[in-house]
Amino acid sequence: MIELVDLTKKFKDAYAVKNLNMFIEKGEIVGLLGPNGAGKSTAISMLSSLLDPTGGDVRYDNKSIIKSPSAFRKVVGMVPQEIALYEDLTAEENLRFFGRIYQLRGKELNRKIDEVLEQIGLTDRRKEVVKKYSGGMKRRLNIGVALLHDPEVIIMDEPTVGIDPQSRNYILETVKRFNEERKMTVLYTSHYMEEVEFLCDRIYIMDKGNLIASGTKEEIKRILSSENTISIKAERFSTDFIESIKNHPSVNRITVGEKEILIIVPRAVNMFSEVIRIAEQFHIELSSVDNKAPTLEDVFLHLTGRALRD
């Protein structure tokens, strides 16, 4: 089991991560959610022993990773947010290089390269230099490199940033398969709520360096059990209408889009009639007013007052 105990990182006067407490059980997929700048990358840098914390500890099987990182490093695979590959080398040459530094040699290395290429679906393109690959293929190879030494734990830092939906689905399915087939422990950070909902057993939500919620998907959604999320759609909204909704005493949170406004209100309040009344007052032609089932995105909005991708 991996435990983060009061993990803190301070850069000059600002806390990037403050008193973070987390645990990850063996074979679990745990999501770490948060907007840009929430402190996710700093947290996983400390977790993977690449960055020394200002305070706190990270423990793997009850041994401190901070004091003695070598044992953990042998069993961890890291998928960084960036494409951490040599773009002038082929996929096979990249895998061979990273395999060699993990002390794989000869037939064993060749077998692992074939296996990983098969798993990430790049066997046919193994001889092509990486710079000719699409964004999705690079991301797949980026993951493949982390799998070469059969890690027990894999840490993925936003592995699907900037790729097409098909590649994204492929990666998500692959991660799920690894977890099921190899019982691999996965820490998955993202700011795509739907990825985390699809993949993760448990979720931690971070904002501004602090942990603001944690639990299973259901537990987190239950945070909104006393509230409703209402979606208001129209071709356009006037400023007066938005202000009036925003200032309504029953509205706890509001997110304004071009053609959709989301509001979070207490479950006991009948907001439908209020919305229609205000729309008539400001001559807004509504196309729909719906009561939405709460999503993790709604929870995040409720907790932080802003959307995840802000």
Binding site: S45, S48, S49, L50, R73, K74, V76, M78, P80, Q81, E82, I83, A84, L85, Y86, F98, I101, Y102, Q103, V145, A146
Partner: peptide, 14 residues
């Protein structure tokens, strides 16, 4: 270092 290759090597036995 910026691309993360350096971090990957640090995590290896090198």
């Amino acid at each position: 270092k910026q691309d993360g290759v350096w971090d990957r090597i640090i995590l290896s036995p090198v």
